[in-house]
Design a protein around this nucleic acid. Structure first.
Length: 946
RNA sequence: GCGGCAUUGGCGGAAUUGGUAGACGCGCUAGACUUAGGAUCUAGUUCUCACGAGUGAAGGUUCGAGUCCUUUAUGCCGCACCA
């Protein structure tokens, strides 16, 4: 019987649905295992063939773990707040919720077709009030907490207040507003005037990870710096722990490195420099304390608070002009224009060691947000300081022996110190240490660790996001009581900012807080006595995705984000699969969020994702036809790709993207092409063999003539006609073929183009395999058959444990080939193979399993996991089975055995081999079988390869 | 500039503690069956007529290196006026 994948897959999926095969219970004696995919943003374009790559990998692993008897949590949901739906709403007036729901429905139907073992009952959507209830709740917790630097953890802010009430006499003298203002400097979620990335085109601020090279990551619009009052999360308080935690999790080194870069720890010294004629010194940060003797000037960031103190009247106008220029430069201009710029303030600082008077400058190469916003400049040993010194003609004093600083600075931290007083003769490393000691002992400064990681800006001037559970009283924010959550997103008639420039929520009428009755009322009632305005910004995209993995554990719980016991059972995510694009966004934010909840005792693990694998991207593979544009061109003639370099066509053809779905193995479907678009209706071709249908345009068919298309790897996108929809692949080849082929494409972690050229081979394999299950007999297997099976079991087990899914498919093919040649139709071999296939191709595996049972008494399926134990004749899939099987039958699977046998040193090689084969130990290993080879080396270590 | 990863046939890629390099698939070649082939089956396919050579290049360790070490080239990714 033919491999009717449509029928097989439909039946399997219906059976799973009916039996609720993948429903996961929170109460179980089984050991828990949590496998998670990064949930998708449901875009309007639907899933393309690249999206399921990671999902298939995690599905394989989930099913494998399930087969091993684990209780596997493997959920899916949707990151459904975001810009595209809102932009669409602005253009069309359609509410983002409608768009989002439609997209989600499409995603779900696409995902279901591929046969994932998700427990759909656990689905979450970030835009669902039942979900964002807990996003808002977490925000309230952050608002009501501070970071205790001694305990190194978050604590309720009430503890801080209690402490101040006891120990700080000024606290009680403050007005309520002043107290609130002071607390704002400690809260983990706080309101502050900060320099933000403002994107005028998107009408919102963006987080640092949402900006790249001065442009917004989404849309690529220019971003400028602006000071605005914004909600921020004090993530920088966690910098040390975020860094340290990386050592305890199993992520790829490159991803950890990316996070380490982003956190940017640097150990240095804070040092005080006095200003000539002033009492108060100012503080700088440096990692090169050893170079103080070479400091010839100082530089302040334009935004530095020190600026006003040091500018003399004489230089005031010049400085102001400079500050004005800097202020109006966008981030992009600043990066593009790296010419040296700066201005002298008129003041001098005193070098604490040389006592020299050194000028203080202002320049925008010093950043206000890092260190203290002020630096000591050592032009001899820092390239930026060097460029500045050359430009302003400032002295350059070399401090390292042999360093030539006539052309460029010597930045390396190596060599012997000179011109440096008590540091002379020391190696740089030792000089730094000695200087730190000196500075600490003399009170000149202190050792300090700095981080590059900034606090996360948490406000977005947008509509389609979580509303803040915040109202404003007397200019200060207050949280809504927890009983009032979730605060639902109000309806608006327009999704654009208001005429007065308020965020879109300014258009909502029902958007004021009645403090007394604890409910949302019309904003026309605002009196600032009992009815107050609500916050108009919404939360950013990462808010909803920061704790969603916790919600999956207990998504129907109305009383808590996750029940403590339930969380105790599942712990954290054992395996997380997703793309690298979230390395500095989501993966930092959720680690922070998780640590915060851990500090407050709500959850049991301080790292959310124990093991993380980055799947590569699937790029598009575009196809081209080549329109002839040379002499006498009609614009209607297309040259086969293999001919375009011939002299008569060279440089006279124009490549045109052609829909990859009407190209098979780079051969164009001529008729489909003519039907594709009206302009190609009368297309004529020069075929691969040089023949043509120019005089007879309607007769040529693909069967007779081949037109070869060119190709290129590009981003998968509609405009390049290279988008491949998984639904089409499932329709044509079946879900199992899609799953196998996506894995077969290459290693999971690397990016690769979607190339359908090999899919037929994979499909062919499944068909051949299926045919082996035609007439199953219950007979004792032969040694050769068992050998094939054991080899396969070993290989597949190793592959799954090591996420080497791409090498499993060849292993299956080899086994199929070997067993096919042996004409094996024995239950003892074919049933275990069905089990091995189950994670990869669950539908066909189930049908294969069914056929092995010969009779109708089918009580279980491979999907049930433990079912393999039920049928005592069949082993469960584990190591013991391997051991047992290899003992029972005198055949071992492929492997190497290494041991030592004493042989005389000068014995010839052939003699040694004889001795080895006659040896007892060898005989025991071989157990009657012939070894594939025996390797003997002079140190008498023998490798027996089976 | 700093850091990370990679480099193997015409292509995607195998080679798991160092042990027959090129598994498996695509493509290609020949043959079989066919009215036909974008179907199926069989055989072959790293390069070279051959001797031989061969995992980006050059060294090294080892009985033995795609795998380990050093230098170097190229590509990809992350960070980047972070003091």
């Amino acid at each position: 019987m033919d491999y009717n994948f449509h029928e097989i897959e439909k039946q399997a999926q219906e059976r799973w649905e009916k039996a609720q095969a993948y429903k996961v219970n929170n109460q179980s004696d089984k050991k828990p295992f949590y496998v998670l995919d990064m949930f998708p943003y449901p875009s309007g374009a639907g899933l393309h063939v690249g999206h399921p790559l990671g999902y298939i990998a995690s599905d394989i692993y989930s099913r494998y773990k399930r087969l091993q008897g684990f209780n596997v949590l493997h959920p899916m949901g949707f990151d459904s707040y975001g810009l595209p739906a809102e932009q669409y709403a602005i253009q069309t007036g359609q509410h983002p919720e409608i768009t989002t729901e439609q997209n989600i429905a499409r995603y779900i139907s696409q995902l279901k077709k591929i046969g994932f073992c998700y427990d759909w009952d656990r689905q979450v959507k970030t835009c669902d009030p039942a979900f964002y209830h807990w996003t808002q709740w977490a925000f309230v917790q952050m608002f009501s907490s501070y970071y205790d630097t001694t305990l190194q953890k978050a604590q309720p802010i009430s503890k801080l207040i209690a402490k101040w009430e006891e120990t700080d006499p000024t606290w009680k003298t403050l007005t309520k507003k002043e107290q609130q203002e002071r607390l704002m400097n400690y809260r983990i979620a706080y309101l502050a005037d900060t320099k933000v990335n403002w994107c005028p085109k998107l009408g919102t601020v963006l987080a640092n990870d949402e900006v790249s090279e001065g442009l917004s990551v989404r849309g690529g619009y220019p971003v400028e710096q602006r000071v605005m009052r914004q909600w921020c999360l004090r993530i920088s308080a966690y910098a040390g722990r975020l860094l340290e935690g990386l050592d305890r999790i199993d992520w790829t080194e490159s991803l950890k490195e990316t996070q380490r870069n982003w956190i940017g720890r640097s150990e240095g010294t804070e040092m005080q420099f006095s200003i000539k004629g002033q009492d108060e010194p100012f503080t700088i940060f440096t990692t090169r304390a050893d170079t103080v003797y070479g400091v010839t000037f100082m530089v302040l960031a334009p935004e530095s608070e020190y600026v006003s103190r040091v500018v003399t009247d004489e230089h005031k106008s010049e400085v102001e002009a400079y500050l004005d220029m800097v202020k109006h430069r966008t981030e992009r201009e600043r990066i593009a224009d790296r010419r040296v710029s700066g201005v002298f303030t008129g003041s001098y600082a005193i070098n604490p060691l040389t006592k020299a008077e050194i000028p203080i400058y202002i320049s925008d190469y010093v950043l206000s947000g890092y260190g203290t916003g002020a630096i000591m400049a050592v032009p001899a040993h820092d390239s930026r300081d060097y460029a500045f010194a050359k430009h302003f003609n400032l002295p350059i004093i070399p401090l390292i022996e042999g360093a030539d600083v006539s052309e460029a600075s010597f930045d390396a931290k190596e060599g012997k110190m000179m011109n440096s007083g008590f540091l002379n003769g020391l190696e740089v490393k030792d000089a730094i240490a000695k200087m730190k000691e000196y500075v600490t002992n003399t009170g000149l400064g202190r050792v300090k660790v700095n981080y590059r990681l900034r606090d996360a800006i948490f406000s977005r001037q947008r509509y389609w996001g979580e509303p803040f559970p915040i109202y404003y009283k007397d200019g200060m924010p207050y949280t809504l009581p927890e009983t009032a959550l979730p605060l639902q997103l109000p309806e608006v008639d327009k999704f654009l900012p208001t005429e007065t420039g308020e965020p879109p929520l300014g258009n909502a009428d029902l958007w004021a807080w009645d403090e007394k009755n604890e409910k949302v009322v019309s904003k026309s009632l605002i009196d600032n006595k009992t009815i107050f305005p609500l916050e108009l910004c919404t939360m950013p995209g990462f808010a909803g995705s920061s704790a969603y993995y916790l919600r999956y554990m207990d998504n129907h719980n109305e009383k808590a984000l996750v029940d403590k016991q339930v969380n105790e059972y599942w712990q954290n995510v054992n395996l997380y699969i997703g793309g690298t694009e979230h390395a500095t966004g989501h993966l930092i934010y959720s680690r922070f969020w998780n640590k915060f909840l851990y500090d407050l005792g709500y959850i049991s693990k301080d790292e959310p994702f124990q093991k993380l694998i980055n799947q590569g991207m699937i790029q598009g593979r575009s196809n081209f036809v080549y329109r002839y544009i040379g002499e006498g061109a009609t614009g209607n003639l297309y040259i086969s790709f293999n001919l375009i370099d011939q002299p008569q066509y060279k440089g006279k053809v124009q490549p045109i993207h052609v829909n990859v779905n009407i190209v098979h193995n780079d051969i164009l479907d001529i008729n489909a092409f003519r039907a594709w678009m009206p302009e190609y209706k009368n297309a004529q071709f020069i075929y691969a063999d040089g023949s043509t249908d120019v005089d007879n345009p309607y007769i040529g068919t693909a069967a007779e003539k081949q037109y070869i298309c060119g190709w290129a790897v590009e981003k998968m996108s509609k405009s390049m006609f290279n988008v491949v929809n998984p639904d089409d692949v499932v329709e044509k080849y079946g879900a199992d073929t899609l799953r196998l082929y996506e894995m077969f494409l290459g290693p999971l972690e690397v990016s690769k183009p979607w190339d359908t050229n090999g899919i037929d081979g994979v499909h062919r394999f499944l068909r051949k395999l299926w045919n082996m299950y035609e007439n199953i007999v219950d007979e004792e297997p032969t040694a050769d058959e068992l050998r094939s099976l054991h080899k396969l079991i070993k290989k597949i087990t190793w592959d799954i444990e090591n996420f080497s899914f791409n090498t499993s498919i060849p292993a299956f093919m080899i086994a199929q080939n070997e067993l096919g040649t042996l004409k094996c139709n024995k239950k003892a071999i074919l049933a275990p193979i069905a089990i091995l296939m189950a994670p990869y191709a669950p539908h066909i595996a189930e049908a294969m399993w069914e056929r092995c049972h010969l009779s109708a008494q089918r009580s279980c399926s491979p999907q049930d996991g433990l079912s393999f134990v039920i049928d005592a004749e069949w082993p469960s899939w584990n190591e013991e089975y391997l051991v047992e099987a290899s003992q029972k039958y005198p055949v071992q699977f492929n492997g190497k055995v290494r041991f030592t046998i004493e042989v005389p040193k000068d014995m010839p090689k052939e003699e040694v081999e004889k001795v080895v084969l006659a040896n007892e130990q060898t005989a025991a290993v071989l157990n009657g079988a012939t070894p594939k080879r025996v390797i003997v080396v002079p140190n008498r270590i023998i490798n027996v390869v089976m």
